[in-house]
Simulated assay, not measured.
Amino acid sequence: MHSEAATILAINGSERAGGNTDLAIEYAGRLISARGATLRTIRLREHQISPCSPCGDCNSRTTLCQLDDDVPALVEQMIHADGLIYAAPVHAFGLAHLMQVFIERAGVGYLRFNRPLADKVGGVIVTGRRYSDSSVHNQIVNNLLLNRMILVGSGFPVLLRNATGKPGLADTEGVDALERMVNRMLDMVHLLRQHQRVTGGSVLPQLDRNERVPRPRPGGFVPTRGDIENVH
């Protein structure tokens, strides 16, 4: 596969420059650099990201979204990275608006057609005061699983809590989880690279790339909507 240093791309979904999410990503970058890899960061607040429009054809269209914004270029960066870290704060007991809009637009408009992030290593960082961080973490994890990414177990989820009102990484358990996650991600990236060098092929067998297209079953049977609705 590649001989150059591994690249991890962090997607920063925080509106606040210099806040807890920025600090967490910067710390992850130092850990990644110490391992000889590279961290690049997309700060969603610096890009034009349009919310999904009322066109209404998301579930039937077979071509990429036609909205003119920065999302296609950001998706390209994601495709060329070895691993992705999604980092976002909790806002109003839920996922911060910027990240929510981005994962909707990127997923529905681009990623769903052939799942280009399949087999990439993924990680999640959630920052918050105290509440709902686990729910937000679960939502992002489900999105990574939807895109067929590889999540590595690293002990505890990376939930960085700070109730002081002043940005900082004082949550020792959260920081420990962050360190473990980053190192496990890099270990997996290196393992996957080694596998591809040996086999010269895909990391995992690739089946259908678009789960919306009915897949033939044994014997050539392709279920229709009526067949599915009649299953009890």
Rank of each mutant, 00 (worst) to 15 (best):
A6D: 01
Y27A: 12
F156Q: 05
G36R: 09
N183T: 03
A177D: 00
G19A: 11
N143M: 08
S132G: 06
M99N: 08
M78F: 09
C55H: 14
R215G: 07
N59L: 14
D57G: 12
V90I: 12
G220K: 14
M181G: 00
A28H: 05
I79Y: 12
L207F: 14
M78G: 02
S135K: 09
L39W: 07
G36K: 08
T21K: 10
G168I: 02
P223A: 15
A96W: 13
R105H: 13
M188N: 05
P216Y: 14
D208W: 06
R112T: 09
N210L: 05
P218E: 03
P214E: 08
R215I: 07
V189R: 02
R193T: 09
R16D: 02
G29D: 09
P72V: 13
C58H: 04
S135P: 02
P205F: 11
V182N: 00
L39F: 14
F221G: 10
N183E: 11
S33L: 06
G155K: 00
M188L: 14
G220E: 06
G226V: 15
L64N: 10
N142Q: 15
S33R: 00
L207E: 04
T62A: 08
E4L: 12
R184V: 00
P218L: 09
R115H: 11
I150Q: 00
I140P: 03
A106L: 04
T63A: 13
I150F: 06
F156V: 02
V231Q: 11
V189H: 10
E46P: 05
D187T: 03
